Amino acid sequence: MTITEELIEVGSLKWFYRNAEPVNPTDKPPVVLLHGLPSQSYSWRNVLPALAEYGFRAVAPDWIGFGFSSQPDRRDFAYTPDAYVEALAEFLEKLGIDRCSLVVQGFLGSVGLQYALRHPDRIERLAILNAPIMPEAKLPWKIKQMGIPLVGDMLTQDPLLVDRTLEGGGGYRVEDADLDVYRRPFLKSSDAGRALLAVIKNLQLSKVTAEIQSGFAHWNSPVLVAWGMRDPWLPFSLAQAFTQQIPGAELAQLEEVGHYPQEDWHEKVNDTLLTFLRRQIV
């Protein structure tokens, strides 16, 4: 298999993404993996090769404003959910991906769910890992404080916020070599912190989760909700309530896994995802 780091221009925006090509390509739709806050596509580094090994092309982008993608000024990119949905649609179109299996995680992964609801014909299967999927979901204080005027301006300029948030979401220590990658955008430019601040201020969580709850009541494609049971911010009860409203939806408990499952325990994520993606649709 081949895993590469790519950069593509879509309009005025530059998207960085990690691309995994299988050794033996198949006609299976590609898998697109979307990260949450304040992460980046690097979080999927151990999931991408597992998907490619079983014949899936896998694409994991850095959201605009995150990682090594563009970090435009708020005057040039609104950092609202609607702006992200539109940008994601244009990104996938540029890559020639007209249908995919979508995997979303975390806060901002909710944008992927909005994309799915607005483009259901482009979704083969949908997997949700610890994301705000019900109106009861609340932004944790650890992240919410980053959007407070003045306070947030200072917090989001601290590269160590990545350490505290990723490790606080599951209680596991992230290796220093990996943290170096997560910190790099914040060390390179203050634009990374300003983008994060703008995202948190514009999450519109109540509006977004209301759209998700009502929209998925009429969803038909296969859905997997895999939940890290050590998530301190989004309780398992959200996953239970969500799956109960979708006929045929699968619910998987990832024991000893936190808010960032692909970072905390990728082997469990790989097993669960591959079982779901390889199962024949009836």
Rank of each mutant, 00 (worst) to 15 (best):
L139F: 05
L224K: 01
G11H: 08
V31E: 03
G228F: 06
M134R: 13
E175T: 00
D176T: 13
A58W: 03
P29R: 00
K94R: 15
D191M: 01
N24C: 09
T209G: 01
Q240T: 14
T272V: 11
L92M: 11
Q240D: 15
Q114W: 03
E93Y: 09
Y54E: 15
I281Q: 13
Y172H: 14
K207P: 00
F91T: 04
P235Y: 04
I123C: 08
A137Q: 03
T275G: 12
L117R: 07
L274V: 12
F236S: 09
L88W: 12
L197H: 01
L139P: 02
E250D: 09
V104I: 11
I281W: 03
Q204V: 09
E167M: 15
A177F: 01
F276V: 04
I200P: 06
L88F: 15
G215P: 07
R75E: 14
L48G: 06
A239N: 05
V23W: 03
T2A: 15
L117M: 11
R18H: 04
G171S: 04
F66L: 10
A58D: 04
Q213E: 12
S206C: 00
F66V: 02
L273D: 03
P22I: 13
A87D: 10
K144H: 12
R173C: 00
R279T: 12
S39I: 00
L92A: 03
Q105C: 09
P81H: 12
F107Q: 03
L95A: 05
P49T: 10
Q253A: 14
S237H: 09
W44P: 08
W63S: 07
T80K: 13
I212H: 00
R183T: 09
Q40L: 13
I3D: 10
I64W: 09
T80M: 12
V103T: 08
G215I: 11
L113T: 04
R45N: 10
R99T: 14
